[in-house]
Simulated scan of single mutants.
Amino acid sequence: MANVWTISLGLAFAASFGTATAQSNLSLTNYTYSPSRTTVGSIRTVNLAGRFKLVGPNASLFKLDKNNQLSIRPDVAKASAPWYDLVFERKAGRSSIRDTFRIVKDEFVHNQVIAHRGAWKKLGTSENSLASLQNAIKLGCMGSEFDVHMSADSVLFVNHDAHIQGLAIEKTPSAELKKLKLSNGESLPTLEAYLTEGIKQNHTRLILEIKTSTLGKERSMALTERILRMVHRLKAQAWVDYIAFDYDVCKKVKELNPDATVTYLNGDKSPEQLAADHVDGLDYHFSVLKKNEGWISDAQQRKLTVNVWTVNDQDSLRWFLERHVNFITTNEPELLLGMIE
């Protein structure tokens, strides 16, 4: 998956720094660096012309050129710090436009393994729990997939199904959902809690599925906007990729954030269609790709990523490995890790 995570919402994302601060529509085309790749990315703006400057305690560690291209000092890139928070500013009359982004050292794993709902099955914990996320990180998975719904009062929760313990998440207040316990004793995690845990490290990416609302398209769009705002607020852009079954949700993510990585799940679009709509890749059920094997090479020729779900048996895992798909989502990450090693 492309190493790009940006937010560019036409909403009130401005951070307050004790001065008059205009609405922020800033994003970066990339949020990571490495000792061998000190160029980070460029600032993107919505209807905001002009140059920005870096301010704050970490400003001297980076350089922003006249084209708003950001880079990190080579000696700083070699340091052990996992990330730096960096403040961008542009004066606009009597107000200033500011936003803060977390620039992350790229130590992310580059294998093909995405743990489906985290690593939970072999270790006997709850799927989509913080423990399953921690297990996926410890195993060394490229990504840990998880699912997000919105409660009746618009709080975001992580759970696969639309219902949990007899309650419809979208029709239940958050106060009731927060009382629920998973089988491993954890509380039902909010998206905020899940992301907060996930960004404590910089090895495993967070593969966020935006669940299709059972209450209609408008609510799916509202869910999408709230998720992107949460990712922005927590400065988690460098960690998060997006997936969705609703094609309109995928396009909405790209509309709000053109540089976000988003892939489509439903299996009814050709690589040509995905490329035309600037979706970054396909993430289809294994039966779809076995039926349409030519889509794998077609997608790769178009520079789209190819992921396949949910592959759990050794023969099928081997079949997709032999065809060099980019990623495999599995309930058996230990098995797949053993095969690729």
Rank of each mutant, 00 (worst) to 15 (best):
A2M: 11
V4W: 04
V4A: 09
L11N: 10
F13P: 03
F13Y: 04
F17S: 02
A20H: 08
S27D: 02
S27P: 02
L28Y: 03
T29M: 09
T29R: 10
P35D: 06
R37N: 13
R37Q: 15
R37S: 13
T39M: 09
V40R: 00
S42H: 08
I43T: 03
V46D: 09
G50T: 07
R51F: 00
K53R: 13
G56I: 02
L61Q: 10
F62P: 01
L64Q: 09
K66A: 14
S71G: 12
P74R: 15
V76K: 10
K78T: 11
Y84M: 01
Y84E: 04
D85V: 12
D85M: 14
L86F: 01
R90A: 08
A92E: 12
S95M: 12
S96W: 07
R98N: 02
F101L: 06
R102A: 03
V104T: 02
V104I: 09
V104M: 02
E107A: 15
F108I: 03
F108E: 03
V109F: 11
V109P: 08
V109S: 06
Q112Y: 08
G118S: 14
A119P: 01
S126P: 13
N128Q: 07
L130N: 02
L130D: 07
L133W: 14
I137C: 00
E145W: 08
D147N: 14
V148E: 01
V148H: 03
H149A: 06
A152I: 10
V158I: 13
D161Y: 07
A162C: 07
A162E: 03
H163T: 10
G166V: 05
A168H: 05
E170V: 14
K171D: 05
L177V: 06
K178C: 02
L180Q: 11
K181Y: 06
K181S: 09
S187L: 05
T190H: 04
L191F: 06
L195F: 09
T196K: 15
T196I: 08
E197L: 11
I199T: 09
Q201S: 13
N202S: 13
N202W: 08
H203S: 14
T204P: 14
L208Q: 00
E209L: 08
T214I: 10
A222Q: 13
L223E: 03
V231E: 04
L234H: 02
L234W: 07
L234V: 08
K235S: 01
Q237T: 08
Q237R: 07
I243W: 00
A244V: 00
Y247K: 06
Y247A: 04
Y247N: 04
D248L: 14
C250D: 00
K251D: 05
E255Q: 15
E255Y: 14
L256N: 09
N257P: 11
P258N: 12
D259H: 15
T261V: 12
T263M: 10
T263P: 06
D268E: 03
P271V: 05
E272V: 05
Q273T: 12
Q273M: 12
L274K: 04
L274M: 12
A275Y: 10
H278I: 07
D280F: 09
F286T: 02
F286R: 10
N292I: 00
E293Q: 15
E293Y: 05
I296C: 06
A299E: 00
R302V: 05
N307A: 14
V311M: 07
N312H: 04
Q314N: 11
D315G: 12
L321P: 07
H324C: 05
T329Y: 10
T330A: 11
N331D: 15
E334C: 07
L336P: 03
L336Q: 01
I340K: 12
E341K: 15
